[in-house]
């Protein structure tokens, strides 16, 4: 049943997708090669896929700084893991509650949730609440709590999934058998929702992995809890700052890690994502696919 026209269009699809796939991957290759390019070669010829001379100096620098960078790694991993687990648990529970249509006060919670998508008190007020009421400054909670732990979008995604994918009859039957809500949730709903758990979990995990702002606000520069992204961002910001402010000649960008080194750190920062990518992208795709089949 495959026609000539199908074949032609299939070929067009192949070409387009191949180009896009190349565009998606090529920059990362350049980044990796850039981090292995010898500083002088980069200055003379720019970053290129075929550098004139190679060097592992940038990585030697990283090894020298490993106490700092390794520690940041551990912090990032810990925060990402903890944050993701907690986030998935509490948002899926709320989503389950919201999918229970007969619950009194459901619309109140729903509105309260939607409202948070529209208004926020701003950084200063959030900072005051967290530091003065909850005292999380310079603690690991400073990286975990503000802003990232739960958001309305994850809840909505879960709720959508629960309402559309899980057969109502199944839940009814369980209820008639006398199962409690907690039991229904953990024994029936969650096992049936693994693809969505994976999708939301991955989204949240990436938010934690890629976050640099909490580290900037809720940790002082003395802190040993800087995450890898905060470290990278700080380097970027310092270079930018020196570009825009004359803070005296004693100190110039010469003392900052060079672009090559920063590229190497970036490579180190994305390595885990790239290594784990084949595993988690499968789940992510599965969740997106099943969550979306709705109409």
């Amino acid at each position: 049943m495959i026609t000539e026209s199908d074949k032609r269009w299939g070929a067009v699809g192949h070409v387009l997708m191949a180009v896009l796939a190349f565009l998606a991957v090529a920059p990362f290759v350049l980044l990796v090669i850039g981090s292995f390019t010898e500083e002088g070669a980069a200055i003379r010829n720019g970053y290129s896929y075929f550098p004139e001379s190679w060097s592992v100096d940038a990585y030697r620098y990283i090894l020298e700084q490993w106490t700092t960078i390794g520690r940041s790694y551990l912090v990032t991993i810990f925060v990402t893991a903890t944050g993701t687990v907690v986030s998935v648990v509490i948002s899926s529970m709320l989503a389950y509650v919201l999918s229970c249509k007969e619950l009194p006060g459901r619309s109140v919670i729903l509105f309260a949730l939607t409202f948070t998508m529209l208004f926020n008190g701003g950084l200063t007020a959030t900072y005051i609440v967290y530091t003065q009421v909850f005292h999380i400054k310079n603690t690991i909670f400073g990286l975990l709590l503000p802003g990232l732990l739960m958001n309305a979008y994850s809840v909505m995604m879960f709720r959508n999934y629960f309402e559309t994918t899980i057969p109502g009859a199944l839940l009814e039957a369980a209820k008639i058998d006398g199962a409690k809500h907690t039991a229904i949730f953990f024994k029936i709903v969650v096992p049936l929702s693994l693809p969505m758990v994976a999708t939301v979990g991955l989204t949240v995990a990436l938010m934690y992995w890629n976050d640099w702002q909490n580290g900037l606000y809720y940790l002082s520069a003395n802190s040993k809890l800087q995450s890898i992204q905060t470290l990278l961002n700080n380097m970027n910001e310092n270079v930018k700052y020196l570009q825009q402010n004359n803070v005296g000649s004693a100190f110039t960008a010469a003392d900052m890690p060079s672009t090559t080194i920063r590229m190497a750190i970036a490579v180190v920062g994305i390595m885990p994502i790239l290594l784990l990518y084949p595993f988690f992208q499968k789940w992510f795709v599965a969740g997106m696919m099943s969550g979306a089949v709705k109409e």
Binding site: L94, T116, F119, G121, A125, V133, L145, P146, M150, V155
Partner: peptide, 15 residues
């Protein structure tokens, strides 16, 4: 989740 919303989203509205 609701507690978190109150802390993270509603208390700062004061600001």
């Amino acid at each position: 989740a609701v507690t978190y919303l109150i802390i993270n989203n509603y208390m700062p509205l004061y600001g």
